[in-house]
Nucleic acid binder design. Structure first.
Length: 281
DNA sequence: CACGGATCCTGATGGC
DNA sequence: TGCCATCAGGATCCGT
């Protein structure tokens, strides 16, 4: 499910509410992608300082009193979502739901990770420099909405890639956060076919792609992300960007620009959608 | 090293 | 209604 916009929308929807809270207890459901890497009870008493995002990961910074105490890395996989419920009068903790696999009870409210397919993860790392954190975050590309995402550098890096532009975007090794929806959408906006060899895209076209990636991700965040089946923010709000998709999940339907039927192909076992007229090899 | 494919898991959907 | 096949927002691991 969640690509960068959905993860950022999730972060924005609960970060200020959980910041400064103390962990009262924590619970695990079925196994996620990786083990937590600490005893779940070791989280008790720690303070959640705030919530950052790196790529599609959320990072909850933890402290023990005034001392840094590591961080929780959370990933939503394909089908995950977080939900935060502030305490209300007479509220009680309830049992974990069928697909709730992690729960953090704090004195400000309860954070739950719901993830039917369990491709997501919650991992404790003692610091951002620790081996486990570096394994998960160390090879991530640049943040697309930051100044470090530079068109000239992007072009130079694409020159070295021997595969299609769609697969390079999905790999997240050059630039993070662009998943299957937004890769197809950004390539449409840039007029580039997903099958085009990354190394053969001219600099002016890379400049267009660079702008398209930033544009589509930023607009998706404003729209609350894309809700296909089960994504919602930590407040339970759905996203609406899928209604603005030009090509994603529109196989056979007319291109909104030129009326040519949208094509669906498979690359790396993932669907790609494109307009054969608007997007050039 | 870089690439392509298989793989983890559950649920929704469509054809027969 | 049931059964089966296919597909789904990700990304790691393994073989070549």
């Amino acid at each position: 499910m969640p690509e960068l916009p959905e993860v950022e929308v999730t972060r924005l929807s609960f970060a200020s509410q959980i910041a400064g809270s103390t962990v009262l207890s924590a619970y695990l459901g079925k196994p996620l992608r990786w083990p937590l890497q600490c005893d779940v009870d070791d989280l008790k008493g720690l303070t959640v300082l705030g919530v950052r995002r790196r790529g599609k990961y959320l990072l909850l910074d933890l402290a023990d009193g005034t001392n840094p105490a590591g961080l929780l890395l959370m990933h939503l996989g394909m089908s995950g979502s977080l939900h935060f419920k502030a305490w209300s009068k007479n509220a009680m903790r309830t049992a974990l739901g069928k697909h709730d696999h992690f729960e953090l009870v704090t004195h400000k409210g309860i954070l739950k990770l719901n993830d039917p397919r369990r491709f997501g993860a919650v991992v404790f790392a003692p610091s951002e420099q620790s081996a486990i954190a570096q394994k998960l975050l160390g090879n991530l590309g640049v943040e697309p909405l930051s100044d470090s995402f530079d068109a000239k550098q992007f072009h130079a890096e694409l020159k070295r890639k021997q595969t299609s532009i769609k697969q390079v975007l999905l790999a997240g090794e050059l630039v993070v956060g662009v998943g299957n929806i937004y890769a197809s959408e950004a390539l449409f906006l840039a007029g580039i076919r997903p099958t085009t060899s990354a190394s053969k895209i001219s600099y002016p076209r890379v400049v267009k792609l660079h702008a398209a990636i930033q544009d589509v991700l930023a607009r998706a965040i404003v729209k609350g992300g894309s809700t296909l089946q089960n994504f919602s923010s930590a407040k339970g709000e759905n996203g609406y960007f899928q209604l603005e998709a030009n090509v994603y999940d529109r196989a056979g339907l007319p291109c909104l620009v030129c009326k040519t039927p949208i094509k669906r192909i498979v690359q790396g076992q993932r669907s790609s959608f494109y307009c054969p007229t608007c997007q050039k090899p």
